[in-house]
Amino acid sequence: MKRTVPLIITFLGGVVLIIAYFIPYTQAWGEKAAVFFDVLAAIAFVLGGGNLLKNHLKKVSDRVAGWGYSVICLVAFLVTLTVGLGKIGVNPNTQFSNYAWSGVYDQVGSPFWWLYEYGFKPLTATMFAILAFYVASAAFRAFRAKNFEAILLLGTAFIILLGRTYAGVVLTGFIPDDSAFSGLKLENFTVYIMQVFNTAGNRAIMIGIALGVASTSLKVLLGVDRSYLGSGGD
């Protein structure tokens, strides 16, 4: 029973979405199914929030390694939740001035805006910026001319790295724009590599992925692959 009901729901959901694609009359059914998912995911937020609290409170109480971070996480979570949901410090919308909560939650100058502007924004930008360091480290460590294919890859990498900056323009600036060899100018050659070789490779991978997605979906819909509901075919 614990397996059968989810399998039936999966099958029905999948069939409805497929039918909705081909039969215009049922188009709205597909949208309804998507809305059902959104509702479920929204309810799951509560579950997630509760789990977050439980997990970090446990870490603090057990004094596990790094429990101080858990304290910071809990404080940040609760403060953001309170000022965001409560619209603290938000002025009412001018059109509905009688309603205290009619303003937008991230109004400029409000505590939530402040948290966003001076907390969230620089922190996420920092995490993204860390990529530059990791890319350099990975390139230094992993990019080796071990065989012919790797040498081709390295050559292409150099062309793209140079062609995507002014260095490419300078290095091959001696080739006239209107000559038969203008395609070899690094900035043009980069675009050619990206649009032809890279696109061809990507398309091959994407075709494989699309077939894999279709096949996996079919297995899940037909109940052939039930491992996501627990291991084995029982």
């Binding site: 494989g208 096949s215 297995k219 491992s227």
Partner: peptide
């Protein structure tokens, strides 16, 4: 696991004939 290998992983790991059959269909 690149793209389709990733989707084939479940069949590969389980070794179940049914799932392996789906790879052939693919």
């Amino acid at each position: 696991l690149i793209g389709e290998e990733f989707f084939a992983a479940s069949a590969y790991l389980s070794g179940s004939p049914e799932e392996l059959g789906s790879l052939k269909g693919q």
